[in-house]
Design a protein around this nucleic acid. Structure first.
Lengths: 248, 248
DNA sequence: AGTCGTCTGTTCGTTACCGAACAGACAGTG
DNA sequence: CACTGTCTGTTCGGTAACGAACAGACGACT
């Protein structure tokens, strides 16, 4: 029986061969990420990289005006803190916990040390960074050309993919902050989606009912991001594959 | 006397220590990039990385509807083809020459080989990739919250920084494609800027007259990108610094 | 010099979204 | 249980940008 919490619940960690995983495992600290916690702000030096398992973290940018926009989300498929190994250490963006849950954190020095061994961790992290970039790129185009409703669908689908539960603890206000629109816009779009039977929500909670209906109403951006994530991260799942091939 | 064309006109190449530069130099091919040439499209395997010297390349995304949006530009400060060393090989985006000029190209195998030596090239390329990501992130937020005029200013300033000449060969139509807006919107915004004395244009040409006036009208995004570029790429200019310290 | 394709200027109605304001409803707390 | 703060629903006028359509102007080319 696997324990309730396990670093391999994070896809990147799960992708590492046993030797690399073994070196890192003793240093991975399980940490609880409560809703709203800020992992870093603009220009802040990160001390750890976070590998989410059940938590979802939102990377977003806060403009001078106070307006915000999410540029990407990170769940069990990724890691928060790519700037640590990319060499910049900090970014002008912020990272905030969007769905409470758990993550394994790793000291930045240890991360860097393992990264510089140029083993599979490096390969996996760089691939993931490219996937992240795709997500940001797609968000840029999406922000420009798609409607609030389409973007809400995209966002809900991405969140649903990262969340094991049917239900997100999330207010319209918070979603509005992510999409960079007014709260009323979200209320209206969510109302339509609920009426169409795609989702259901109540004060502070939203749940996805019908994935395929939601996809029909979403813009192409969701599919592009999902497909590219699959492409970039599929052929690096060594340890998982072994576990399947050789069950203990 | 330096020849008219020199790989060191690209900041990344200029940043390499003599040994690394020496290994690459024989393989760097000067290539002419005519306006409008597409270096790659979605899913296309790149054969070379391009290090622009005088050319400017636009990275942009084409939606199913045919609408487009630029997500970042690359000039002498960067390289086209980060997916080669990030491990994905391809991206869903395209790269098109926005201002004719020159670039040095390097075969992908040679790039990868040198990248995997884990020397300064790797460090420089990863840093640049982070800077690129900042640019894309900023574009995403900017697309969401800033006006056409503000974005036009930002775009002109970034182009001016990359171009040695005062004058860009560029129609309103093309600029509209970059910003993801209608041509008329660009005409209107450009008209205002011209009236204010910030820029001057005539059929197919635009030139920046007053950088600081333009900055006043631009959104914060220009300054953020510029500053972050400086921060990420300033402390890696080894060879240039030596050249200054020890003039031949 | 004249021709023609491209680029720029301008107009008009339409639409999505914004900003502000407020009523009602829910749920946690004392 | 009632209170209270937060969340949702809805309204209104305002505006930036859209889509379509067309006139005029430039300039390359013959």
């Amino acid at each position: 029986m696997a324990p309730a919490h396990n670093p391999s619940q994070n896809y990147l960690l799960a992708a590492l061969p046993a030797a690399e995983f073994g070196r890192l495992a003793p240093h991975l600290e399980l940490s609880v990420l409560p809703l709203g916690e800020r992992l870093y702000g603009p220009g802040e030096q990160l001390q750890h990289a976070y590998f989410p398992t059940s938590a979802i973290v939102s990377l977003h940018y806060v403009l001078e005006s106070g307006a915000t926009a999410e540029t990407a989300g990170v769940g069990h498929e990724g890691v928060v803190g790519v700037s640590l190994f990319m060499g910049g250490d900090t970014t002008p963006s912020s990272a905030v916990v969007q769905a409470a849950g758990h993550a394994y954190r790793l000291d930045r020095h240890l991360l860097l040390q393992e990264f510089n061994r140029a083993g599979l961790l490096q390969r996996v992290l760089l691939r993931y960074t490219q996937a992240l970039m795709t997500q940001v790129t797609q968000t840029a185009a999406c922000n420009r050309h798609h409607s609030v409703e389409q973007r809400l669908c995209r966002w809900l689908l991405l969140a649903a993919d990262r969340s094991p539960e049917r239900e997100l603890v999330m207010t319209h206000e918070l979603v509005a902050g992510m999409l960079g629109v007014r709260r009323e816009g979200v209320t209206e779009a969510a109302g339509k989606l609920q009426q169409a039977g795609c989702i259901r929500y109540r004060r502070g909670h939203m749940s996805v009912l019908d994935l395929s209906k939601l996809q029909d109403r979403a813009c192409e951006c969701y599919a592009v991001v999902r497909k590219e994530n699959g492409r970039l991260l599929s052929d690096v799942r060594y340890r998982q594959d072994m576990a399947v091939a050789l069950p203990t």
